[in-house]
Amino acid sequence: MFDRLRKEIPILLKRSELKTDIRLQQVCELLKNSVPHYDWVGFYFKNGDKEELKLGPYAGAPTDHTIIPFGKGICGQVAVSNQNFVVPDVQAQDNYIACSISVKAEIVVPLFINGENIGQIDIDSNTPDPFTEEDERFLEFVNLEVAKIWV
């Protein structure tokens, strides 16, 4: 599955006739529809000069969390740490922002442009402890591909 997606994602992202947000939306939908344990897929981006993240394109249930302060929740922690964060059980995290009672696990991988963390991809799963190192490497690949089209 990830091998197929590694071929499809660059093709989607290279469609320069489409706005960046539309291409990112298509990536979110492709991931959500292709990976059984990806129940919500979205991008958060640094909100200008503010110490907060702003929700970008996503696929899945609507969320109230359109702005996340740095340090708050899993996404906010990744904005500060610049490190991947895999949460096998969201209930065990003190600093977790609940989006839905059905979410059991989360993975967040930072997105770097020229060495600067400008955002992240965030995946919620309704499956307990579904994320492996393969998910991490794959999402790092996705972010490297997204970085290539960033303007």
Rank of each mutant, 00 (worst) to 15 (best):
I121A: 10
Q25C: 02
P130R: 13
L13N: 08
I68N: 03
K72G: 00
I68H: 03
P88Q: 01
Y58M: 11
Q91H: 00
Q93G: 06
C28T: 15
N117F: 00
L139I: 08
N126C: 03
V146H: 00
E29Y: 05
L24E: 08
E29K: 14
V78D: 06
I74R: 05
R15T: 12
E136H: 11
S16I: 07
A147C: 00
N126W: 03
I22K: 07
I123Q: 02
P130I: 11
G71Q: 02
N117V: 01
K54H: 07
N126E: 10
C28I: 09
I22N: 00
F138R: 05
E106C: 13
R15G: 08
T132K: 11
V142F: 03
S16L: 05
L31G: 04
D49A: 12
L12Q: 08
A105W: 07
E52F: 03
I149E: 11
R15C: 08
L18A: 03
N114Q: 14
M1T: 14
V87E: 01
L31Q: 04
D124E: 10
G73C: 01
P10I: 10
F112H: 09
T127M: 07
K32I: 03
E116G: 12
E29N: 14
D89M: 03
V87W: 02
P36W: 04
E145C: 11
G42F: 05
I121C: 06
Y58K: 10
V35G: 04
F112Q: 06
N84H: 07
F138E: 08
V103F: 11
K50A: 13
D49Y: 09
C75K: 07
L139K: 04
H65R: 13
V27K: 03
V87Q: 02
F85G: 06
P62D: 09
P62M: 05
V41L: 01
L13E: 07
D129F: 00
N82H: 10
I123L: 01
V78C: 10
Y38C: 04
L5W: 01
E140Y: 06
N114V: 09
I68Y: 02
V142Y: 01
G115Q: 01
D21M: 12
F85T: 14
K14Q: 15
K148N: 15
V142C: 06
F45I: 06
D39W: 01
P10F: 09
V86P: 10
T66F: 04
E51N: 13
A59F: 09
K7P: 02
Q83T: 15
G42D: 04
T132V: 03
N47Q: 09
G119M: 13
P10Q: 08
I107N: 05
P57I: 04
L55N: 04
E140Q: 13
P88K: 05
T127P: 08
Y38I: 04
C99L: 14
F141S: 07
V80N: 07
N114L: 10
K7N: 08
K14D: 13
E133K: 15
T63Q: 00
L18T: 04
A98W: 00
S125V: 02
D122N: 00
I101G: 14
A92L: 13
D135H: 10
I22D: 00
C75H: 03
K32G: 07
T132Q: 06
F43I: 11
L139V: 08
L12R: 09
G73F: 02
P110H: 12
L31A: 03
K46S: 11
I149M: 13
